[in-house]
Design a binder for these strands. Structure first.
Ligand code: MN
Length: 547
DNA sequence: GTAAAAAGCG
DNA sequence: TTCACACCCTCAG
DNA sequence: GAGGGTGTGTCTCGCTTTTTACGT
């Protein structure tokens, strides 16, 4: 087990804020700059204490609950923090903030000071935590609960400033200081790509504000989705208006907007949903419009949307939707519409005994009688794809990598991703056909990079056995064609591969999608199969029924 | 009382 | 904060 | 049976300590 040095968390914190200050000091506001400079001037113990609190839940702490051996004198540490305005000591607190700091049994013993009668105490003990909280809030209205507390309370201040630092460092607010720890413990592994110190993820204060605003508003999303139509529209208006120059944030905002509109549909506010979809450029905004319009009996307008999609589809999935949905709608209303070319993959049915394992495992067992069979789903093809194009994904392109905790370049899903990496893409693609020659490289890469975070390689799946079978029996042209399709739309085509791969004793291979009773082909699975058929890649659907 | 969930932590 | 499945409903034939 | 929708696992580490839920 790896041991971390004492104060590891402060080292991590400083690495983060120092880097951000170096890169972004011109974009920080006054509060953030002061936060940084103040913090740097603190005593070590005060710094320890601040970061400890920052990584714990909530903003309010009892001094007695902050016990750390590296903080010898907590009172002087908290006083130092207080002078620097990084905490407040015994501040006025609303009941909502004070209540969570004590556990249920603790509150009961605190309330004993009020000399309540026995029955009241018994009834309080029966309350759930949530009900107790409500009761205490009510009680606080008559009697200030704070006066019953006789121990020092510390309120963490200026944590918002650190939010900005985290955002600037990671580019999101999903990652935090634990990434450092997990990496240093050897639990996470990141590729050691070259970090581009010369480009920044954020280029203006306005952009930063938009992000911060987005994340802040996002906290209310669940509540809005559970609310009524009004709550949802309100929420929609709270989201930042993002300029088209900021693709990343625009996508995030639009994704939220789609979930809002989807909920409006459920609440039968179709017109409001429509208007949100109309100003949205992500999928499935046009699909939803077509569906809503048909539902409203506006057949012509629905078909118009379908036609717009067909003229300029944003993806294969959207195109297929428009062709099929348009066809069905048109047929029903006796309008002319080209018949889509449906594809029916080869099917067969097997009958096997039901076990505790899931249906894919049972089916794999069954097919083992014909040869070697592996349960791979997306793992095999994506993994080899990731291994082969490894240098492409981690290439030091401008702005692609700005911190050590990325599992992919920032621009992986941008339209110009490949264009920016043309040379390396061309070069690596030349060798896709000779898989036999690649095996050694792959095995080397596996042993060298084992466990490194990437969106493509499923390390635990890649046994030598599987790879040897795969490279012996799957022709180079098939690999090439599969990789080509993944590149066409990395996000959409990274899933939908069949469950099993069978290498029959007599040679060759076959991809097998298992369908248990009641399950059916997903759209993305069908799209892959259509492509397999076009390129003579052997595949079939096997329906399982229980013996 | 015990079991499950949440928080803390390296 | 994904992807694949499980399970439900409706509707047309 | 096809098409469509919703709900549900998994808690991207694994361990220890604290807190809550509940009467099997
Ligand atoms: Mn399946």
């Amino acid at each position: 087990m790896i041991e971390l040095p004492q104060g590891y968390y402060l080292t991590n914190f400083l690495e983060l804020v120092d880097y951000v200050y170096e890169q972004y000091n011109d974009l920080l506001n006054k509060q953030e700059t002061e936060f940084y400079l103040n913090f740097k001037s603190l005593t070590k113990e005060a710094q320890f204490l601040y970061v400890r609190m920052l990584t714990r839940k909530g903003l309010v702490f009892r001094e007695s609950k902050l016990n750390y051996q590296e903080i010898k004198d907590i009172q002087s540490a908290s006083k130092t923090l207080s002078k620097a305005s990084l905490v407040e000591l015994n501040p006025p607190l609303a009941a909502e903030s004070l209540i969570p700091v004590f556990s249920k049994p603790e509150w009961i013993s605190i309330l004993k000071q009020l000399e309540l009668d026995k029955e009241t105490i018994v009834s309080i003990k029966k309350l759930s935590r949530g009900a107790l909280d409500e009761m205490l809030i009510e009680l606080d209205k008559e009697f200030d609960l704070y006066t019953l507390i006789d121990e020092p309370i510390i309120l963490l201040s200026q944590f918002e400033a650190f939010e900005t630092f985290k955002l600037l460092f990671f580019g999101n607010l999903n990652q935090d200081l634990t990434d450092f720890v997990l990496r240093d413990l050897g639990l996470y592994r990141f590729e050691s790509y070259q970090i581009d110190r010369n480009s920044r993820l954020f280029s203006s204060r306005e952009q930063i504000e938009n992000y911060l605003n987005y994340y802040q508003v996002l906290e209310g999303l669940d509540e809005a989705l559970q609310g009524d139509c009004k709550a949802i529209i309100n929420f929609h208006q709270l989201l930042p208006q993002v300029e088209a120059t900021d693709n990343t944030l625009m996508r995030r905002v639009q994704r939220v907007n789609i979930s809002l509109a989807r909920q409006l549909e459920r609440l039968a506010s179709l017109d409001q949903a429509l208007s949100i979809y109309r100003e949205n450029s992500l999928e499935p905004s046009r699909e939803r419009q077509a569906r809503i319009l048909l539902k409203q009996n506006k057949v012509d307008r629905s078909l118009e949307i379908c036609q717009q999609i067909i003229n300029a589809p944003r993806s294969e999935s959207e195109l297929i939707f428009a062709q099929e949905f348009g066809f069905r709608a048109a047929k029903k209303h006796k309008i002319k519409w080209p018949q889509p070319d449906g594809y029916k993959p080869p099917q067969e049915t097997i009958s096997i005994p039901q076990t505790e394992d899931n249906v894919e495992i049972s089916a794999r067992q069954y097919f083992s009688q014909y040869g070697e069979c592996f349960y791979i789903e997306n793992g095999l093809f994506l993994s080899v794809f990731g291994l082969h194009y490894w240098p492409l994904f981690f290439a030091p392109i401008k702005g692609a990598f700005t911190n050590p905790f990325q599992f992919r370049p920032h621009d992986l899903y941008e339209d110009d991703f490949l264009k920016k990496r043309q040379d390396i893409y061309q070069k690596l693609s030349l060798t896709v056909d000779n898989m036999q020659d690649n095996i050694e490289n792959y095995l080397n890469r596996i042993s060298e990079k084992q466990g490194t975070s990437t969106p493509f390689v499923f390390w635990e799946l890649l046994t030598k056995d599987l790879l040897e079978f795969a490279f012996e029996h799957i022709p180079g042209t098939h690999w090439k064609q599969i990789f080509d399709r993944i590149f066409l739309d990395i996000k959409a085509n990274r899933s939908g591969f069949p469950d099993l791969i069978l290498f029959p004793a007599e040679g060759g291979y076959e991809l097998i999608e298992i369908k248990g009773p009641g399950d059916k082909l997903q759209k993305n699975q069908l799209r892959w199969m259509k492509y397999f058929a076009k390129h003579d890649i052997p595949h079939k659907v096997v329906n399982v029924e229980w013996q």
